[in-house]
């Protein structure tokens, strides 16, 4: 009797085709985190190929130069129109805020547009969905790729601000640990908000392309991006303090421009009223960012799961909705 190839034995692990020709249950066993990581990395690569525009000068110019720079210049001109250039610290305030908003816009639009693109344009959403890849991992992967685009835009805007707009900046004063912590937590929050928008876009029409920008515009109001929260009415300030983006922007400012203008604290601010302090410390920023980010992430995942169920129930995953 000849020996049986171990790979063909009925009890062979992995994906071996069983000698008795039946179904191999090994194929239905996933590999847990390995598969999730694989899905994520593949999605990042795919997103990078689709979104990355380093080799296309026009696309690079549009997404990494023109858009973020224009946003910053709008605010700089508004500032100069009123103050006549007399407040350079405010110029740093608006330039940093505007530059960081590139991350927000990229991250939020990345996930939402992935849903709309793959459903309406490429008609691939259903195939991604029914593949064994973890759908959330795929979405986050595509979102991360887009954040990379935003990162380049943010860097260029900051560089232009320092070189041409006289934003005072000293690289030796950067608080690197704070920067790293805040960036990690903040980007996770951005992706969470993007996931929330993606969940909404799963239910809406093709014309939802503008929703991420609309949402980013609204968050712009309450996140202390280009003006201190103290300017807002107190109830609106409370919304801002509950938003992880507010703490993220504040943390980046603390890290890059220690001692600079605070968006959260200051006279008339809700934070100062509640805490008595003129501005939050680095530790407070990290802790609150972690807490608000966690809540945002959990809420986003819950909304996404609910939207996912509704989409399956109503057959929305492969619809096209043009008008």
């Amino acid at each position: 009797m000849t020996a049986v190839d171990p790979a063909l034995r009925p009890d062979a692990p992995g994906l071996a085709s069983p000698a008795w020709g039946g179904f191999d249950p090994a194929r239905t066993r996933g590999r847990g985190w390995i598969d999730i990581r694989h899905s994520f990395v593949t999605a990042v690569r795919l997103g990078w190929k689709m979104e990355a525009n380093w080799t296309d000068p026009l696309l690079f110019f549009i997404y990494s130069v023109a858009k973020p720079l224009a946003s910053a210049l709008i605010l700089v001109v508004m500032l100069d129109v009123i103050s006549g250039g007399a407040k350079p610290e405010y110029r740093a305030f608006v330039v940093v805020g505007s530059a960081l908003w590139s991350f927000v816009l990229s991250g939020m639009s990345g996930l939402a547009w992935m849903i709309l693109d793959d459903r309406e344009r490429y008609r691939m959403l259903k195939y991604l969905y029914v593949s064994p890849s973890d759908f959330l991992a795929v979405m986050f992967g595509r979102g991360v790729a887009r954040i990379g685009v935003g990162a380049m835009g943010a860097s260029i805007t900051l560089a232009v601000g320092v070189v041409f707009l006289r934003v005072p900046f000293e690289i030796g004063r950067i608080d690197w640990p704070l920067l790293l912590a805040v960036m990690t937590l903040g980007l996770t929050s951005i992706l969470a908000i993007g996931l929330l928008l993606a969940a909404i876009c799963m239910q809406t029409r093709q014309e939802s392309w503008s929703y991420p920008e609309a949402a980013a515009g609204a968050l712009f109001l309450i996140s202390g991006v280009v003006f201190p929260l103290s300017v807002l009415p107190l109830p609106v300030q409370s919304l801002g303090l509950l938003t992880p983006l507010t703490w993220w922007v504040e943390g980046i400012r603390h890290a890059l421009f220690p001692g600079g203008v605070t968006a959260i604290g200051g006279p008339g601010s809700l934070y100062t009223r509640l805490s008595g302090a003129p501005s939050p410390t680095s530790g407070e920023i990290v802790v609150v960012l972690l807490a608000t980010g966690a809540v945002a992430t959990l809420a986003a995942v819950a909304v996404f799961r609910s939207s996912d169920r509704r989409a399956k129930d109503r057959g929305l995953l492969d619809q096209t909705t043009g008008s």
């Binding site: 508004m78 500032l79 009123i82 609309a214 949402a215 003006f227 201190p228 300017v231």
Partner: peptide
């Protein structure tokens, strides 16, 4: 959904710039 995304949120975005000017007096 456009009522929320195309009306309310843009109003908030416009409000952000209003507050920039208010902050600058």
């Amino acid at each position: 959904s456009w009522v929320f995304f195309e009306i309310l949120l843009p109003f908030l975005a416009t409000s952000a710039f209003v507050f920039v000017y208010r902050a600058l007096e």
